[in-house]
Design a protein around this nucleic acid. Structure first.
Length: 156
DNA sequence: GCCAACGTTGGC
DNA sequence: GCCAACGTTGGC
């Protein structure tokens, strides 16, 4: 019995999409500036899996799968005055924001749209389908994750 | 482009 | 500590 947890992580494909991750192999999930999302990242452990979700596009939905390879990494962009995600209130000796390193595991055969996700799952089963949900990092209950993986089929 | 659903900021 | 104003996310 594994204790692996599952997550859903959003990114706008125009900013950073699954194709880019596929090319790079792995990425630092930096720039998170929401405490709830950060706290979810803090509760991740190495080996956890995350569904890659394309947001703010047509259609939005799940496109691939990632693995957490490193946790609690201090987000370097918070100290970079030129960075978009610079946080002048974060101090070097007490960083406010951290992130995780993720490895590309694969793409699914087709995008699983939010519309289809809503048809199959309730907000309790899959929090991302809750109306108005803006959190960019969300948990996926294990039973839903298992069901999703079966539905999505093999990775490419 | 519209707007619902928040999270954040700052005056008091 | 309250809350109005404002900003952001992201579906539609």
């Amino acid at each position: 019995m594994t204790t692996r947890n599952y997550w859903l992580m959003k990114s706008e494909p125009d900013a950073y999409g699954i194709d880019q991750l596929k090319q790079e192999g792995s990425t630092l999930w930096d720039g998170i500036r929401n405490y709830q999302a950060r706290n979810f990242m803090r509760s991740m452990v190495v080996g956890d899996r995350a569904f890659f979700y394309h947001s703010n596009c047509k259609p939005p939905g799940i496109v691939g799968l990632m693995e957490v390879t490193e946790t609690r990494i201090i987000d370097p962009t918070q100290f970079d005055a030129k960075a978009k995600y610079y946080d002048p209130n974060s101090k070097q000796d007490k960083p406010r924001w951290d992130c995780v390193q993720l490895r590309y595991l694969g793409c699914f055969n087709e995008l699983l749209s939010l519309e289809k996700l809503r048809d199959r799952y309730s907000a309790e089963e899959l929090p991302v389908v809750r109306k108005g949900n803006r959190l960019s990092i969300l948990p996926v209950p294990k039973s839903t994750a298992t069901n999703l993986l079966q539905w999505l089929g093999p990775l490419n």
